[in-house]
Design a protein around this nucleic acid. Structure first.
Length: 400
DNA sequence: CCTCCACTGGAAACCTAGGCTC
DNA sequence: GAGCCTAGGTTTCCAGTGGAGG
């Protein structure tokens, strides 16, 4: 505890003295959209061209943007739309509204529509309404107020994969209900194959224009980082080679600009905490570990309680357990903290969910005479699990 | 070649918590 | 308030299964 207070003092003192490496920390945040998006001129022009009808009060084509994570799709889309909004305002054209929803985060058709409604300023209860009623309210609102909406549908592949594509069909066919308003969709997908999952009727109307985002090359990432560094960090705070390493690490799989920028930001924060005047390659390596670790602890913390307990059942089981064994441990743990246990069928489902999250690995194994089950092993270190679970007020007791 | 284990995983039904209309 | 709708989590039921041991 004492050490914490001291280090806090340190932080405050540094801040008071202005000892920081950052000139403008916001520039390295993940939601920051720079004015000049490097290496994306082509896409910016295409999207701009596709959307110009908006300025003549006409409905623009629906667009589909493709590309891997961190290739600038969302940033480019938001950037172009903001510029169009400005242009419309300057020329006294009707206001254009931009709605944004990430369908994977939203989780279902219904919640995607709730997002859309909220951005348009209508209240939709989070449950209780038939889907058609929600659509109806949105359409009525648009046509009544002559609203021009461009709806950015991020991770649209999620809707297609969960066979939630009814909503896409309705949205693309909505123009007759909208009076003088319109609703245009910009779909963003990480998955280049997602088109095959889509109903052909939806595809043809959604795919009026298609724009591809190739991953950034390492050299391009490097330039992006240099560009951001100019405004984000104070001069002379970055050691030679540091940016190269960020770019190389982020580019090793596919050119992910988000990752590159995050690496630099976290590296800078670490260097600052260590009171170093320069950010070095070592800081970047530490940052990379920290990012990975934080991602894991974060996903454990946000787990529902029963999944936490299932995960805890695997604590210190190096060889892994079968489903039945996990369930037995799970039962004793729930008893220990006085919680009603779920059924084995449900726990088996939870194990699968943990598997898709990558926290455990569940492999189907056959023991012939002795049945077939899953062999479940922990995919994270015992220490990380212990530290994170101990912080949990209730589940933490199971480790005592 | 057959049996039979210890599950898997699909399907349906149920429950809760909300909201609609009449 | 009844009777209908929604989502989302859970329970109940059950047919299906790969292969070690007989």
């Amino acid at each position: 505890m004492q050490r914490k207070a001291d280090s806090l003092d340190d932080i405050f003192n540094k801040a008071l003295k202005g000892e920081t490496l950052f000139a403008d920390r916001g520039v390295l945040r993940s939601d920051y959209i720079p004015n000049n998006l490097l290496f994306r001129e082509e896409q910016i022009t295409s999207i701009g061209q596709a959307l110009t009808p908006t300025l003549q009060n006409q409905k623009p084509s629906n667009l589909l943007l493709y590309g891997k994570t961190g290739s600038g799709k969302t940033a480019v889309a938001k950037h172009v739309l903001e510029r169009i909004q400005e242009a419309a305002r300057k020329n006294n054209k009707t206001e254009i509204m931009i709605a944004y929803s990430n369908s994977r985060l939203a989780g279902s058709e219904y919640r995607t529509l709730v997002d859309l409604g909220q951005e348009l300023g209508i209240k939709i209860p989070f449950t209780g309404l038939p889907l058609s009623e929600v659509l109806d309210r949105i359409y009525k609102h648009i046509s009544k107020n002559n609203i021009k909406v461009i709806f950015i549908l991020d991770e649209i592949d999620f809707l297609a994969k969960q066979s939630y594509d009814d909503i896409l069909y309705s949205l693309t066919r909505s123009s007759e209900h909208l009076g003088n308003g319109f609703l245009s969709i910009i779909g963003i997908s990480n998955d280049l194959h997602f088109k095959t999952l889509l109903d052909s009727r939806v595809l043809s109307s959604l795919n009026e224009e298609e724009i591809l985002f190739h991953p950034y090359t390492v050299r391009e990432l490097n330039e992006i980082l240099e560009d951001r560094t100019k405004t984000a960090l104070k001069e002379g705070t970055v050691q030679e080679g540091t940016l190269n390493l960020c770019a190389a690490m982020a580019g090793s799989e596919h050119g992910d600009a988000r990752r590159a920028i995050e690496l630099l930001r976290v590296a800078a924060e670490i260097a600052e905490r260590e009171s170093k005047p320069k950010i070095t390659e070592q800081h970047v390596k530490t940052a990379s570990h920290k990012i990975d670790r934080d991602r894991i602890t974060q996903s454990i913390k946000t787990l529902p309680i029963h999944e936490k307990i299932v995960l805890t059942s695997l604590f210190d089981e190096k060889k892994g357990l079968t489903t039945g064994e996990v369930y037995q441990k799970y039962l004793t743990l729930t008893k220990k903290i006085g919680l009603d246990p779920l059924t084995q069928r449900r726990v088996s489902g939870l194990i699968n969910e943990l598997d898709t999250q990558g926290l455990v690995s569940a492999k189907l194994v056959n023991h012939g005479r002795y049945g077939r089950t899953k062999n479940i092993t922990l995919m994270i270190s015992n220490e990380t699990l212990q530290e994170t679970i101990e912080e949990d007020e209730l589940v933490g007791q199971t480790l005592q």
